[in-house]
């Protein structure tokens, strides 16, 4: 027979709904960016829709992430030192680069209108695509390395996360 807890203590969830919102938004953004990169790589389409999705979701994802920090004013601490052992630290670099590059790309694409893509824009698209992979990789890795959470710490979890994104 299982144990009966006569005295027990609750532990609240430390990552609030914001974290989930972030994972969803950034995942969607990164997914869209990947689609965009793929589309442009195989030159099937301009994929402006995917770009709009990628840019807006990437931009939006920053907000819930900041909200999930209990000390949002200290976000600069991410950049004042190096913590290469922490996947989250890598993410703290990937995310602004991804947001920035996606926005820049959106800006470039928007400004040129229907004119053909320049080499710079094409390179940037590929950079955005790579960064999107980094984002997906880091978010999935961030959760799966936490062996304390049995569901997360499975080989399948990153795959599931990427696919759902």
């Amino acid at each position: 027979m299982p144990a009966v807890d006569l005295m027990s203590f609750d532990h609240e969830a430390v990552w609030r709904p914001w974290a989930v919102a972030y994972f969803l938004l950034v995942g969607t953004g990164a997914g869209a960016a990947l689609l965009l990169a793929y589309a442009r790589l195989v030159r099937v389409a301009e994929a402006k829709g995917a770009l709009i999705v990628a840019a807006s979701f990437a931009l939006a994802s920053g907000l819930p992430l900041l909200a999930d920090l209990h000390q949002p004013a200290r976000f600069m601490h991410f950049y004042s030192g190096a913590a290469p052992g922490s996947i989250m630290w890598w993410g703290s670099w990937f995310l602004p680069l991804f947001i920035g590059s996606t926005l820049l790309l959106a800006f470039m694409t928007g400004r040129r209108g229907n004119a053909p893509m320049c080499a710079g824009e094409r390179t940037l698209t590929m950079i955005v695509g790579v960064l999107a992979l980094c984002i997906l990789g880091y978010t999935a890795g961030e959760m799966s390395v936490v062996s304390a959470r049995p569901v997360w710490n499975t080989l399948g979890f990153p795959v599931v996360l990427i696919l759902t994104a």
Binding site: D10, E12, A13, W15, R16, P17, A19, V20, L24, A148
Partner: peptide
């Protein structure tokens, strides 16, 4: 181990 965090988060979304 509480798994409620993740679930709660999903619902609250």
């Amino acid at each position: 181990i509480s798994r409620r965090g993740v679930l709660q988060g999903a619902t609250a979304l």
